[in-house]
């Protein structure tokens, strides 16, 4: 078991009224699993992702990662976990606009204190793998949406994390780019990476092996996907 939550609650105190974003979530995700988390906006799925990905800490409950209780980790330890153990793919790409593709992909390694030469080598390998070899020196704001998201995946992969967290990764892409992206995630899953996908699209969620539905800060359903989508079933426009 890679990730385990035990009765995790998250409350946001905003003056007099407190918002209970998560009201007691228990779940576990195995190494190599491809899990989709679904829910309407305001359901708490984003808050859940933030806790799973060490961006925030639960108000109560326990959070285990790779056998360690990280519920009470310091901010510094959490930053370290984000750096080494997880990779992020965001809906809005979040690339550094005035930096090149290479610089964007190197960014996580900067905070991992990896030497410049190795940084460059590793970044180039991942960039090549995602079919962006010809774009290495381009500024990220010169890229198409699909390319941007592939840079983001390259950036997520470069520190060789255990888990990839993808937060609505197809939300800003056209359907063809979206499918290509899901193809990449599928491929990574095939290689043994654990993938946690947040989405509100049933179609996208069906690429995962398992779907967790969140409603009002609680798990509504946790189901295995019977008929998985696969990129192999589709012919996308090249």
């Amino acid at each position: 078991m890679l990730i385990e939550l035990q009765d995790v609650k998250k409350t946001f105190d905003e003056g007099e009224s407190a918002t209970h974003a998560l009201r007691g979530i228990s779940l576990s995700i195995n190494k190599g699993e491809f899990v989709a988390i679904m829910g309407a906006s305001g359901s708490g799925k984003s808050t859940l992702l933030h806790i799973l990905s060490f961006l925030s800490r639960p108000t109560s409950g326990r959070h285990f990662f790779d056998g360690k209780d990280v519920s009470n980790f310091s901010l510094m330890d959490l930053a370290n976990l984000r750096n080494k153990s997880v990779g992020f793919v965001f809906q809005s790409f979040n690339l550094l606009a005035r930096a090149t593709v290479l610089e964007n992909v190197e960014l996580p390694m900067l905070y991992a204190n990896i030497r410049p030469k190795e940084r460059r080598q590793r970044a180039l390998i991942v960039i090549e793998r995602l079919g962006l070899g010809h774009r290495t020196k381009h500024l990220s704001n010169q890229l198409s949406g699909g390319e941007k998201q592939r840079v983001a995946i390259a950036r997520a992969l470069v520190n060789q994390p255990e888990v990839i967290f993808a937060d609505e990764p197809t939300g800003n892409l056209d359907s063809s780019s979206g499918e290509q992206l899901m193809g990449v995630l599928e491929e990574l899953h095939g290689e043994g990476k654990t993938i946690v996908l947040i989405t509100h699209e049933t179609y996208t969620a069906a690429f995962a092996e398992r779907i967790i539905h969140i409603k009002d800060g609680l798990i509504e359903a946790d189901t295995v996907v019977e008929e998985r989508h696969s990129i192999k079933d589709h012919k996308f426009i090249k």
Binding site: S53, L55, L75, M76, A79, N80, R82, N83, K84, F88, N94, L96, L107, P108, Y111, A112, R155, N159
Partner: peptide, 15 residues
């Protein structure tokens, strides 16, 4: 947002 991203990919407060 840049600060948020840097933190997401592992920058500490000190960085």
């Amino acid at each position: 947002r840049e600060i948020g991203l840097r933190k997401a990919v592992g920058a500490t407060d000190r960085d």
